[in-house]
Design a protein around this nucleic acid. Structure first.
Lengths: 356, 356
DNA sequence: CTGAAAGCGCTTACAG
DNA sequence: CTGAAAGCGCTTACAG
């Protein structure tokens, strides 16, 4: 209460203050602030001048209470510390701010139970929308969902008709990566992290397509499954491959940059030179990739586009009200060529390292 | 009566619903939920049972509106994508959730103007508290601050009497890192990122103290300044040092892990082996350090402790109201020994890689 | 230890 | 195109 009183004294301007100065009712001020049509231009100007004069900023708690919303959307990711997700989170926060939304970041550790719980709105507070980057969630989980909070899924795997989804075209991206290796003259291209038996794995499909298009048969001995997208698993799988293959690969496509980092490690330990003996391409464009030796060639998804599109889809669900059929949207990506395929010191222009 | 309750079922349960079921007033429910004393145990039990029964969760917008708060605290960092900060953010979010607070993450890019703006509350909405990890902010900036939002600063540099501050003891941590190198037999220990002329630089002081304690004179030729804590700068500074020094160092202490990664790169390119020829220690314990070859020995700050302490200090400022003298709190840290000082394959136990 | 009621700062049918 | 008034779901002096 004391706070409130002091607040008044300090004169944090309210809607009524603006209305009084502009000589109009609260309703009109509200109309102007919320950008509704049908406000006389002159009135609008007077209101905006008053807003400016007192430095008015709406009290979001009051607005949300009146609107029956919380003003909070949740971004659910496996682990914020993973650079791919923190970079994504930065962009989501940025674009959400423009809409007056807070972003509640929630970590699942990539655990299925936690991902399911997020889907059912198990948050300490009410949320208006949900953006989920899931690792284990299946179409089934979405179909049995009871909660109706607007939802958009991110990530490699699509969910068909079960949910809205935003991602790069992973098949095309993987194919671009492998085409790059083939263009360098590689003929024995390994894939670390691809499951040859999972035809639903888009990166695996892109790998296969690229090879077939180049008239190179797929050699299962050059493919290795992994259990998690970690550096350790990448290293283990690559070591395994080197131990079993009759001849080492001359190119490696890794499903993520982390895995690529592990693969490079295994190659080094086996006495192979990157990219001299083996060229390596990763996926995600995490900042580590620029800091290591050799720096990492990778697929860079347009994270800003992912964030903007996901938020737009949430907004549409919130306002439209129509339960339009789930949409699967693609965003751009590009190949970033660095030393792991082009050679040490070959990419002097690549210097967008974080400022820290 | 029952009809009324069922009618309400359409919406989310409110405080009144709980009150009705428990047969008490809203006030009493509020008291129980907010953990106030002086509620008869039996009444409390009835209320809690009702809360449980309907799955009541308070509407934070309404609560904050009534309390005259926003329920939002801002966490200001240079860049979320930097793993040190995203890891920190994860812990802050976690601890804030326990207090019913949202965390608004704000990036400054390490730019002074942006850091100053954050200090003055230039947020799209009102915030209850501010945790700032600043790169450029000085004591002067704090002294001219007009805004009175509770504030806690993080980061390497303390601000004396000018502000509350939470950090590890950077002098002790740096000394621990250098002691480790000395214990390994290093005698020519370089420091990358230390400014020999800035006596206020705690990591530099720790470096000097360690050398002096070991009876080794400080050799200015082994110290190199950098302009940003980036891999590139670390590489450039190290290359510079190698070019100018009569004899290469046998140990390197880098001010951050990023810088250490760059230093290792320069050492490799100069044909030096890490740790065979030169042992390297970094600072921060970013996850990259576990994924690269050689994995990085580093100083690991207790980020959970930083988060909890900072939030506790904010809470104290919010409730206490007393403008107690600014406190400078230390949290624990520890040295993590990995391959960059111990040798390849030497640290099999170090495998806490992120689950991604 | 508990209740009745005012008030937090907005939005939004409903009139005009 | 604009106004007066109810209501969103809480907290909190103020009484009892």
């Amino acid at each position: 209460m004391t706070d409130v009183v002091q607040d008044r004294k300090a004169g944090r301007p309210r809607l009524t203050d603006v209305a009084e100065i502009a000589g109009v009712s609260m309703k009109t001020v509200s109309n102007v602030i919320n950008g509704y049509q049908h406000v006389a231009p002159r009135t609008r100007e007077r209101v905006l001048a008053a807003v400016e004069e007192v430095g008015y900023r709406p009290n979001l708690s009051a607005r949300n209470l009146a609107r029956g919303r919380s003003g909070v959307i949740a971004l659910v990711v496996p682990q914020l510390e993973m650079p791919y997700f923190s970079a994504l989170a930065g962009r989501v926060i940025e674009r959400a701010e423009a809409r007056g939304w807070f972003v509640l970041i929630h970590e699942t550790g990539g655990v299925l139970a936690a991902e399911r719980a997020a889907l059912e709105g198990s948050f300490p507070q009410r949320i208006d929308g949900l953006i989920v980057s899931a690792r284990r969630l299946s179409v089934d989980d979405l179909q049995v969902r009871k909660d109706h909070t607007p939802l958009v899924l991110l990530g490699e795997h699509g969910y068909g008709e079960a949910a809205h989804h935003v991602a790069i075209d992973n098949v095309a991206a993987a194919r671009t990566a492998v085409d790059h290796l083939l263009g360098l003259g590689c003929r024995r291209v390994a894939m670390i992290g691809g499951d040859p038996d999972d035809t639903g794995d888009p990166r695996m499909r892109g790998y296969v397509e690229a090879l077939e298009h180049a008239g190179i048969g797929v050699d299962r001995n050059l493919m290795r499954r992994i259990t998690t997208n970690s550096g350790e698993e990448g290293e283990r799988a690559t070591r395994d491959l080197l131990a079993q293959a009759a001849e080492p690969p001359d190119g490696v496509f890794a499903v993520t940059d982390w895995v690529a980092l592990g693969a490079i490690r295994a190659l080094h330990l086996a006495g192979l030179h990157v990219p001299g003996d083996v060229a390596v391409v990763g996926f995600d464009d995490i900042p580590y990739g620029r800091a290591v030796t050799p720096s990492l060639t990778t697929i860079s998804p347009d994270r800003t586009a992912i964030a903007e599109l996901a938020l737009g889809m949430l907004e549409a669900q919130l306002s439209g009200g129509t339960l339009a059929d789930p949409v699967d949207q693609n965003v751009p990506f590009h190949l970033v060529v660095r030393e792991s395929t082009a050679g040490i010191g070959s990419a002097p222009g690549e210097s967008q390292e974080p400022v820290a």
